[in-house]
Design a protein around this nucleic acid. Structure first.
Length: 582
DNA sequence: GGCTCGACTTGGAATGAGTACG
DNA sequence: CGTACTCATTCCAAGTCGAGCC
């Protein structure tokens, strides 16, 4: 039986977990849960048991409120009163008027097409061209409304906050296996215009309002079924404890299922997270064998094996994603390793004094560009030339390979091994190594944190976690530089004074340390310009590495993880001591 | 095998709240 | 005391991967 590292919040100190405990095949099946808005505590020998009394299901987006009469829509210069349903969709577009989306033709066309579908036949007869639609008054109405809300007096804001808290309290929790757990997303998504990323062919399409009739409720048999909002019915109520979702619905853009699930702080999610890192740690034990194996396969007689081994090399060395096939025309054209096309790489026998350089240039997940020039081993280079022979730019680089084939192979190499485990493994091991290399035990906490951020950043760069340079970046950077200059000046002055009077020594020190802090801050900020650290921290770095590092170097964990992150990583904070090794 | 679907993780942007600063 | 900036939270899109079907 698996010993869970995680403890319920009511008894966090009960933990008694050996780090070497092997993972059982599966985590224990959770039993039942309930949506819950009221509950009572019941004392038992194990502590507090939550008993659910009443439950509500998901929180639905508020209904549309028609615009005041004086906010007008104009078609071809003439004001026109729209039917409520038509007006609602118009407001979705009006709200986005100063967003780049509305300048894109695909967005405009998709929106207009879907909008016209929902119009009355009279409206449809009149409204034939988007360019003739004037949403400016509507747009202004929402901008003003927003500003009015921001300018609300303190008490009013407080009131709004309390209302939100009440909703969170009523809808935001469920009972799972007798414990109260926070739900991640307890609200259905509101209607609006689909905002696909990159060149998404469906951007601007109408995302329909989710009704109770669309929603499947999943709760235990012996629980009271949540009441649908009055006058409505659920699509279905089912009792399936082999899955972890509490409710679901099918969205109309891609026809995919959306789920309501638990918050990362929950025991269920925490155990899964832990399990993920344990798989990655097992990879650590066999990775050198796997590497020699794929190196050997570079020379295989089978084309399929050669492709597989080169792809695996990329996944391992560059932390590329697996790269599933995608349905053409349904989504933006993005690729991962297995779906790379000839046009995405360039081969340079020699470049900038290096041999066998592969230049990658492709759009990955979320249409984030991956651009990298990498020297590779000679057999890899030769193989790539072979794979590209007599192919067109649009052809698959690995025509004999897909993620299913690759993952089947990986499964044979190690139980539970898939392509994404390499990303987790390489990210975590890199953090551990970088921390070892960069941390100075004699440094103060601020300097240690700078080292931590640098280690974190090395991982983010490996995983290509980018972000748009914040708009305010340049300006705020200049301000920081000005501050540093000012401090330097002060420092110089202080030094002059020192010569005159020893008494000024203390003041000088204060200024000097402050200047140092700002310099650290600026360095950190500059280095971080386009790199997002959050994703790797949240999804790829075994939190026990960070916990151990904090303990070892006397850095408070709060400096690394904020409140939410500490909740998510509660299992690791409980589990890891300073000797933890990934 | 190929294809679709379901369930779950991963991801950057938008939004909101908090805080430092002038 | 407002405002500008930072950091946290929310949002929901976009991946991964296995199962089940034919």
């Amino acid at each position: 039986m698996l010993v869970s590292p995680w403890c319920w919040s009511t008894s966090p100190s009960l933990l008694d977990f050996s780090l070497t405990t092997p993972l059982a095949e599966t985590l224990p099946n959770h039993s039942w849960w309930f949506f819950s808005i009221r509950w009572e505590e019941e004392k038992t020998d194990d502590g507090v048991k939550w008993k659910q009394l009443e439950h509500k299901g998901p929180y639905f987006a508020p209904l549309y409120e028609p615009l005041p009469d004086d906010v007008k829509f104009y078609y071809d210069g003439k004001s026109m009163k729209l039917n409520v349903a038509t007006e609602e969709i118009a407001t979705f577009y009006a709200k986005m008027l100063d967003h780049e989306y509305t300048t894109k033709e695909i967005f405009q066309n998709n929106f207009f097409h879907d909008w016209r579908k929902e119009m009355t036949s009279e409206e449809r007869k009149k409204i034939k061209h988007l360019e003739k639609c004037d949403f400016k008054e509507m747009h202004k109405y929402f901008v003003d409304k927003n500003e009015a809300r921001k300018a609300l007096p303190k008490e009013e804001k407080q009131k709004l906050k309390e209302e939100a808290d009440k909703i969170q309290e009523e809808y935001g929790y469920c009972i799972l296996d007798g414990h109260r757990e926070k739900i991640g997303n307890f609200k259905t998504e509101p209607p609006g215009l689909f905002r696909g990323r990159g060149d998404h062919p469906k951007m601007g399409m109408l995302k329909k309002r989710i009704m109770p009739e669309d929603v499947i409720i999943n709760c235990s048999k012996d629980s009271k079924t949540p009441e649908p909002p009055s006058g409505h019915k659920w699509k279905e109520v089912r009792c399936d404890n082999t899955v972890t979702w509490l409710a679901s619905w099918t969205e109309n853009i891609q026809n995919s299922i959306k789920y309501i699930m638990l918050n990362p702080s929950s025991k269920l999610k925490g155990e899964k997270d832990w399990q993920k890192y344990e798989v990655a740690r097992r990879l650590k034990g066999v990775v050198s064998k796997i590497r020699s194996q794929y190196r050997a396969d570079w020379k295989s007689r089978e084309m399929k094996k050669r492709q597989r081994s080169v792809a695996l090399y990329f996944i391992d060395k560059l932390a590329l994603r697996a790269g599933n096939e995608k349905e053409e025309g349904e989504t933006a054209d993005t690729v991962g390793c297995c779906s790379l096309r000839v046009e995405h790489i360039k081969l340079h026998p020699e470049l900038d004094g290096q041999e066998h350089v592969v230049e990658f240039d492709f759009l990955g997940k979320d249409s984030i560009r991956y651009y990298n020039k990498v020297p590779v081993e000679k057999p890899v280079f030769k193989n790539l030339q072979l794979f590209m022979e007599s192919k067109d730019p649009g052809d698959d680089l690995f025509d004999r390979l897909n993620t299913t084939v690759l993952n089947k192979h990986l499964q044979d190499l190690m139980d539970g091994l898939t392509a994404k485990v390499f990303r987790t493994y390489n990210a975590s091991i890199t953090l551990q190594e970088q921390l070892k290399a960069l941390t100075n035990a004699e440094d103060n906490v601020a300097a240690k944190l700078l080292s931590y951020n640098r280690a974190n950043r090395a991982v983010a760069i490996l995983c290509n976690h980018q972000r748009a340079t914040p708009k305010s970046f340049e300006k705020s950077m200049q301000n920081l530089q000005a501050k540093i200059d000012a401090k330097k000046e002060q420092l110089a002055e202080a030094q002059m004074e020192l010569k005159r009077a020893k008494a000024d020594l203390k003041a000088k020190k204060d200024v000097k340390s402050k200047a140092g802090r700002d310099r650290g801050h600026a360095t950190d900020k500059e280095e971080n310009k386009q790199i997002a650290l959050g994703t790797s921290k949240l999804n790829y770095l075994d939190p026990r590495i960070s916990v151990a590092w904090c303990k070892k170097f006397g850095v408070p964990i709060e400096k690394i993880y904020n409140k939410t992150q500490r909740e998510k990583f509660a299992w690791a904070i409980d589990m890891a001591d300073e000797d933890f090794e990934f």
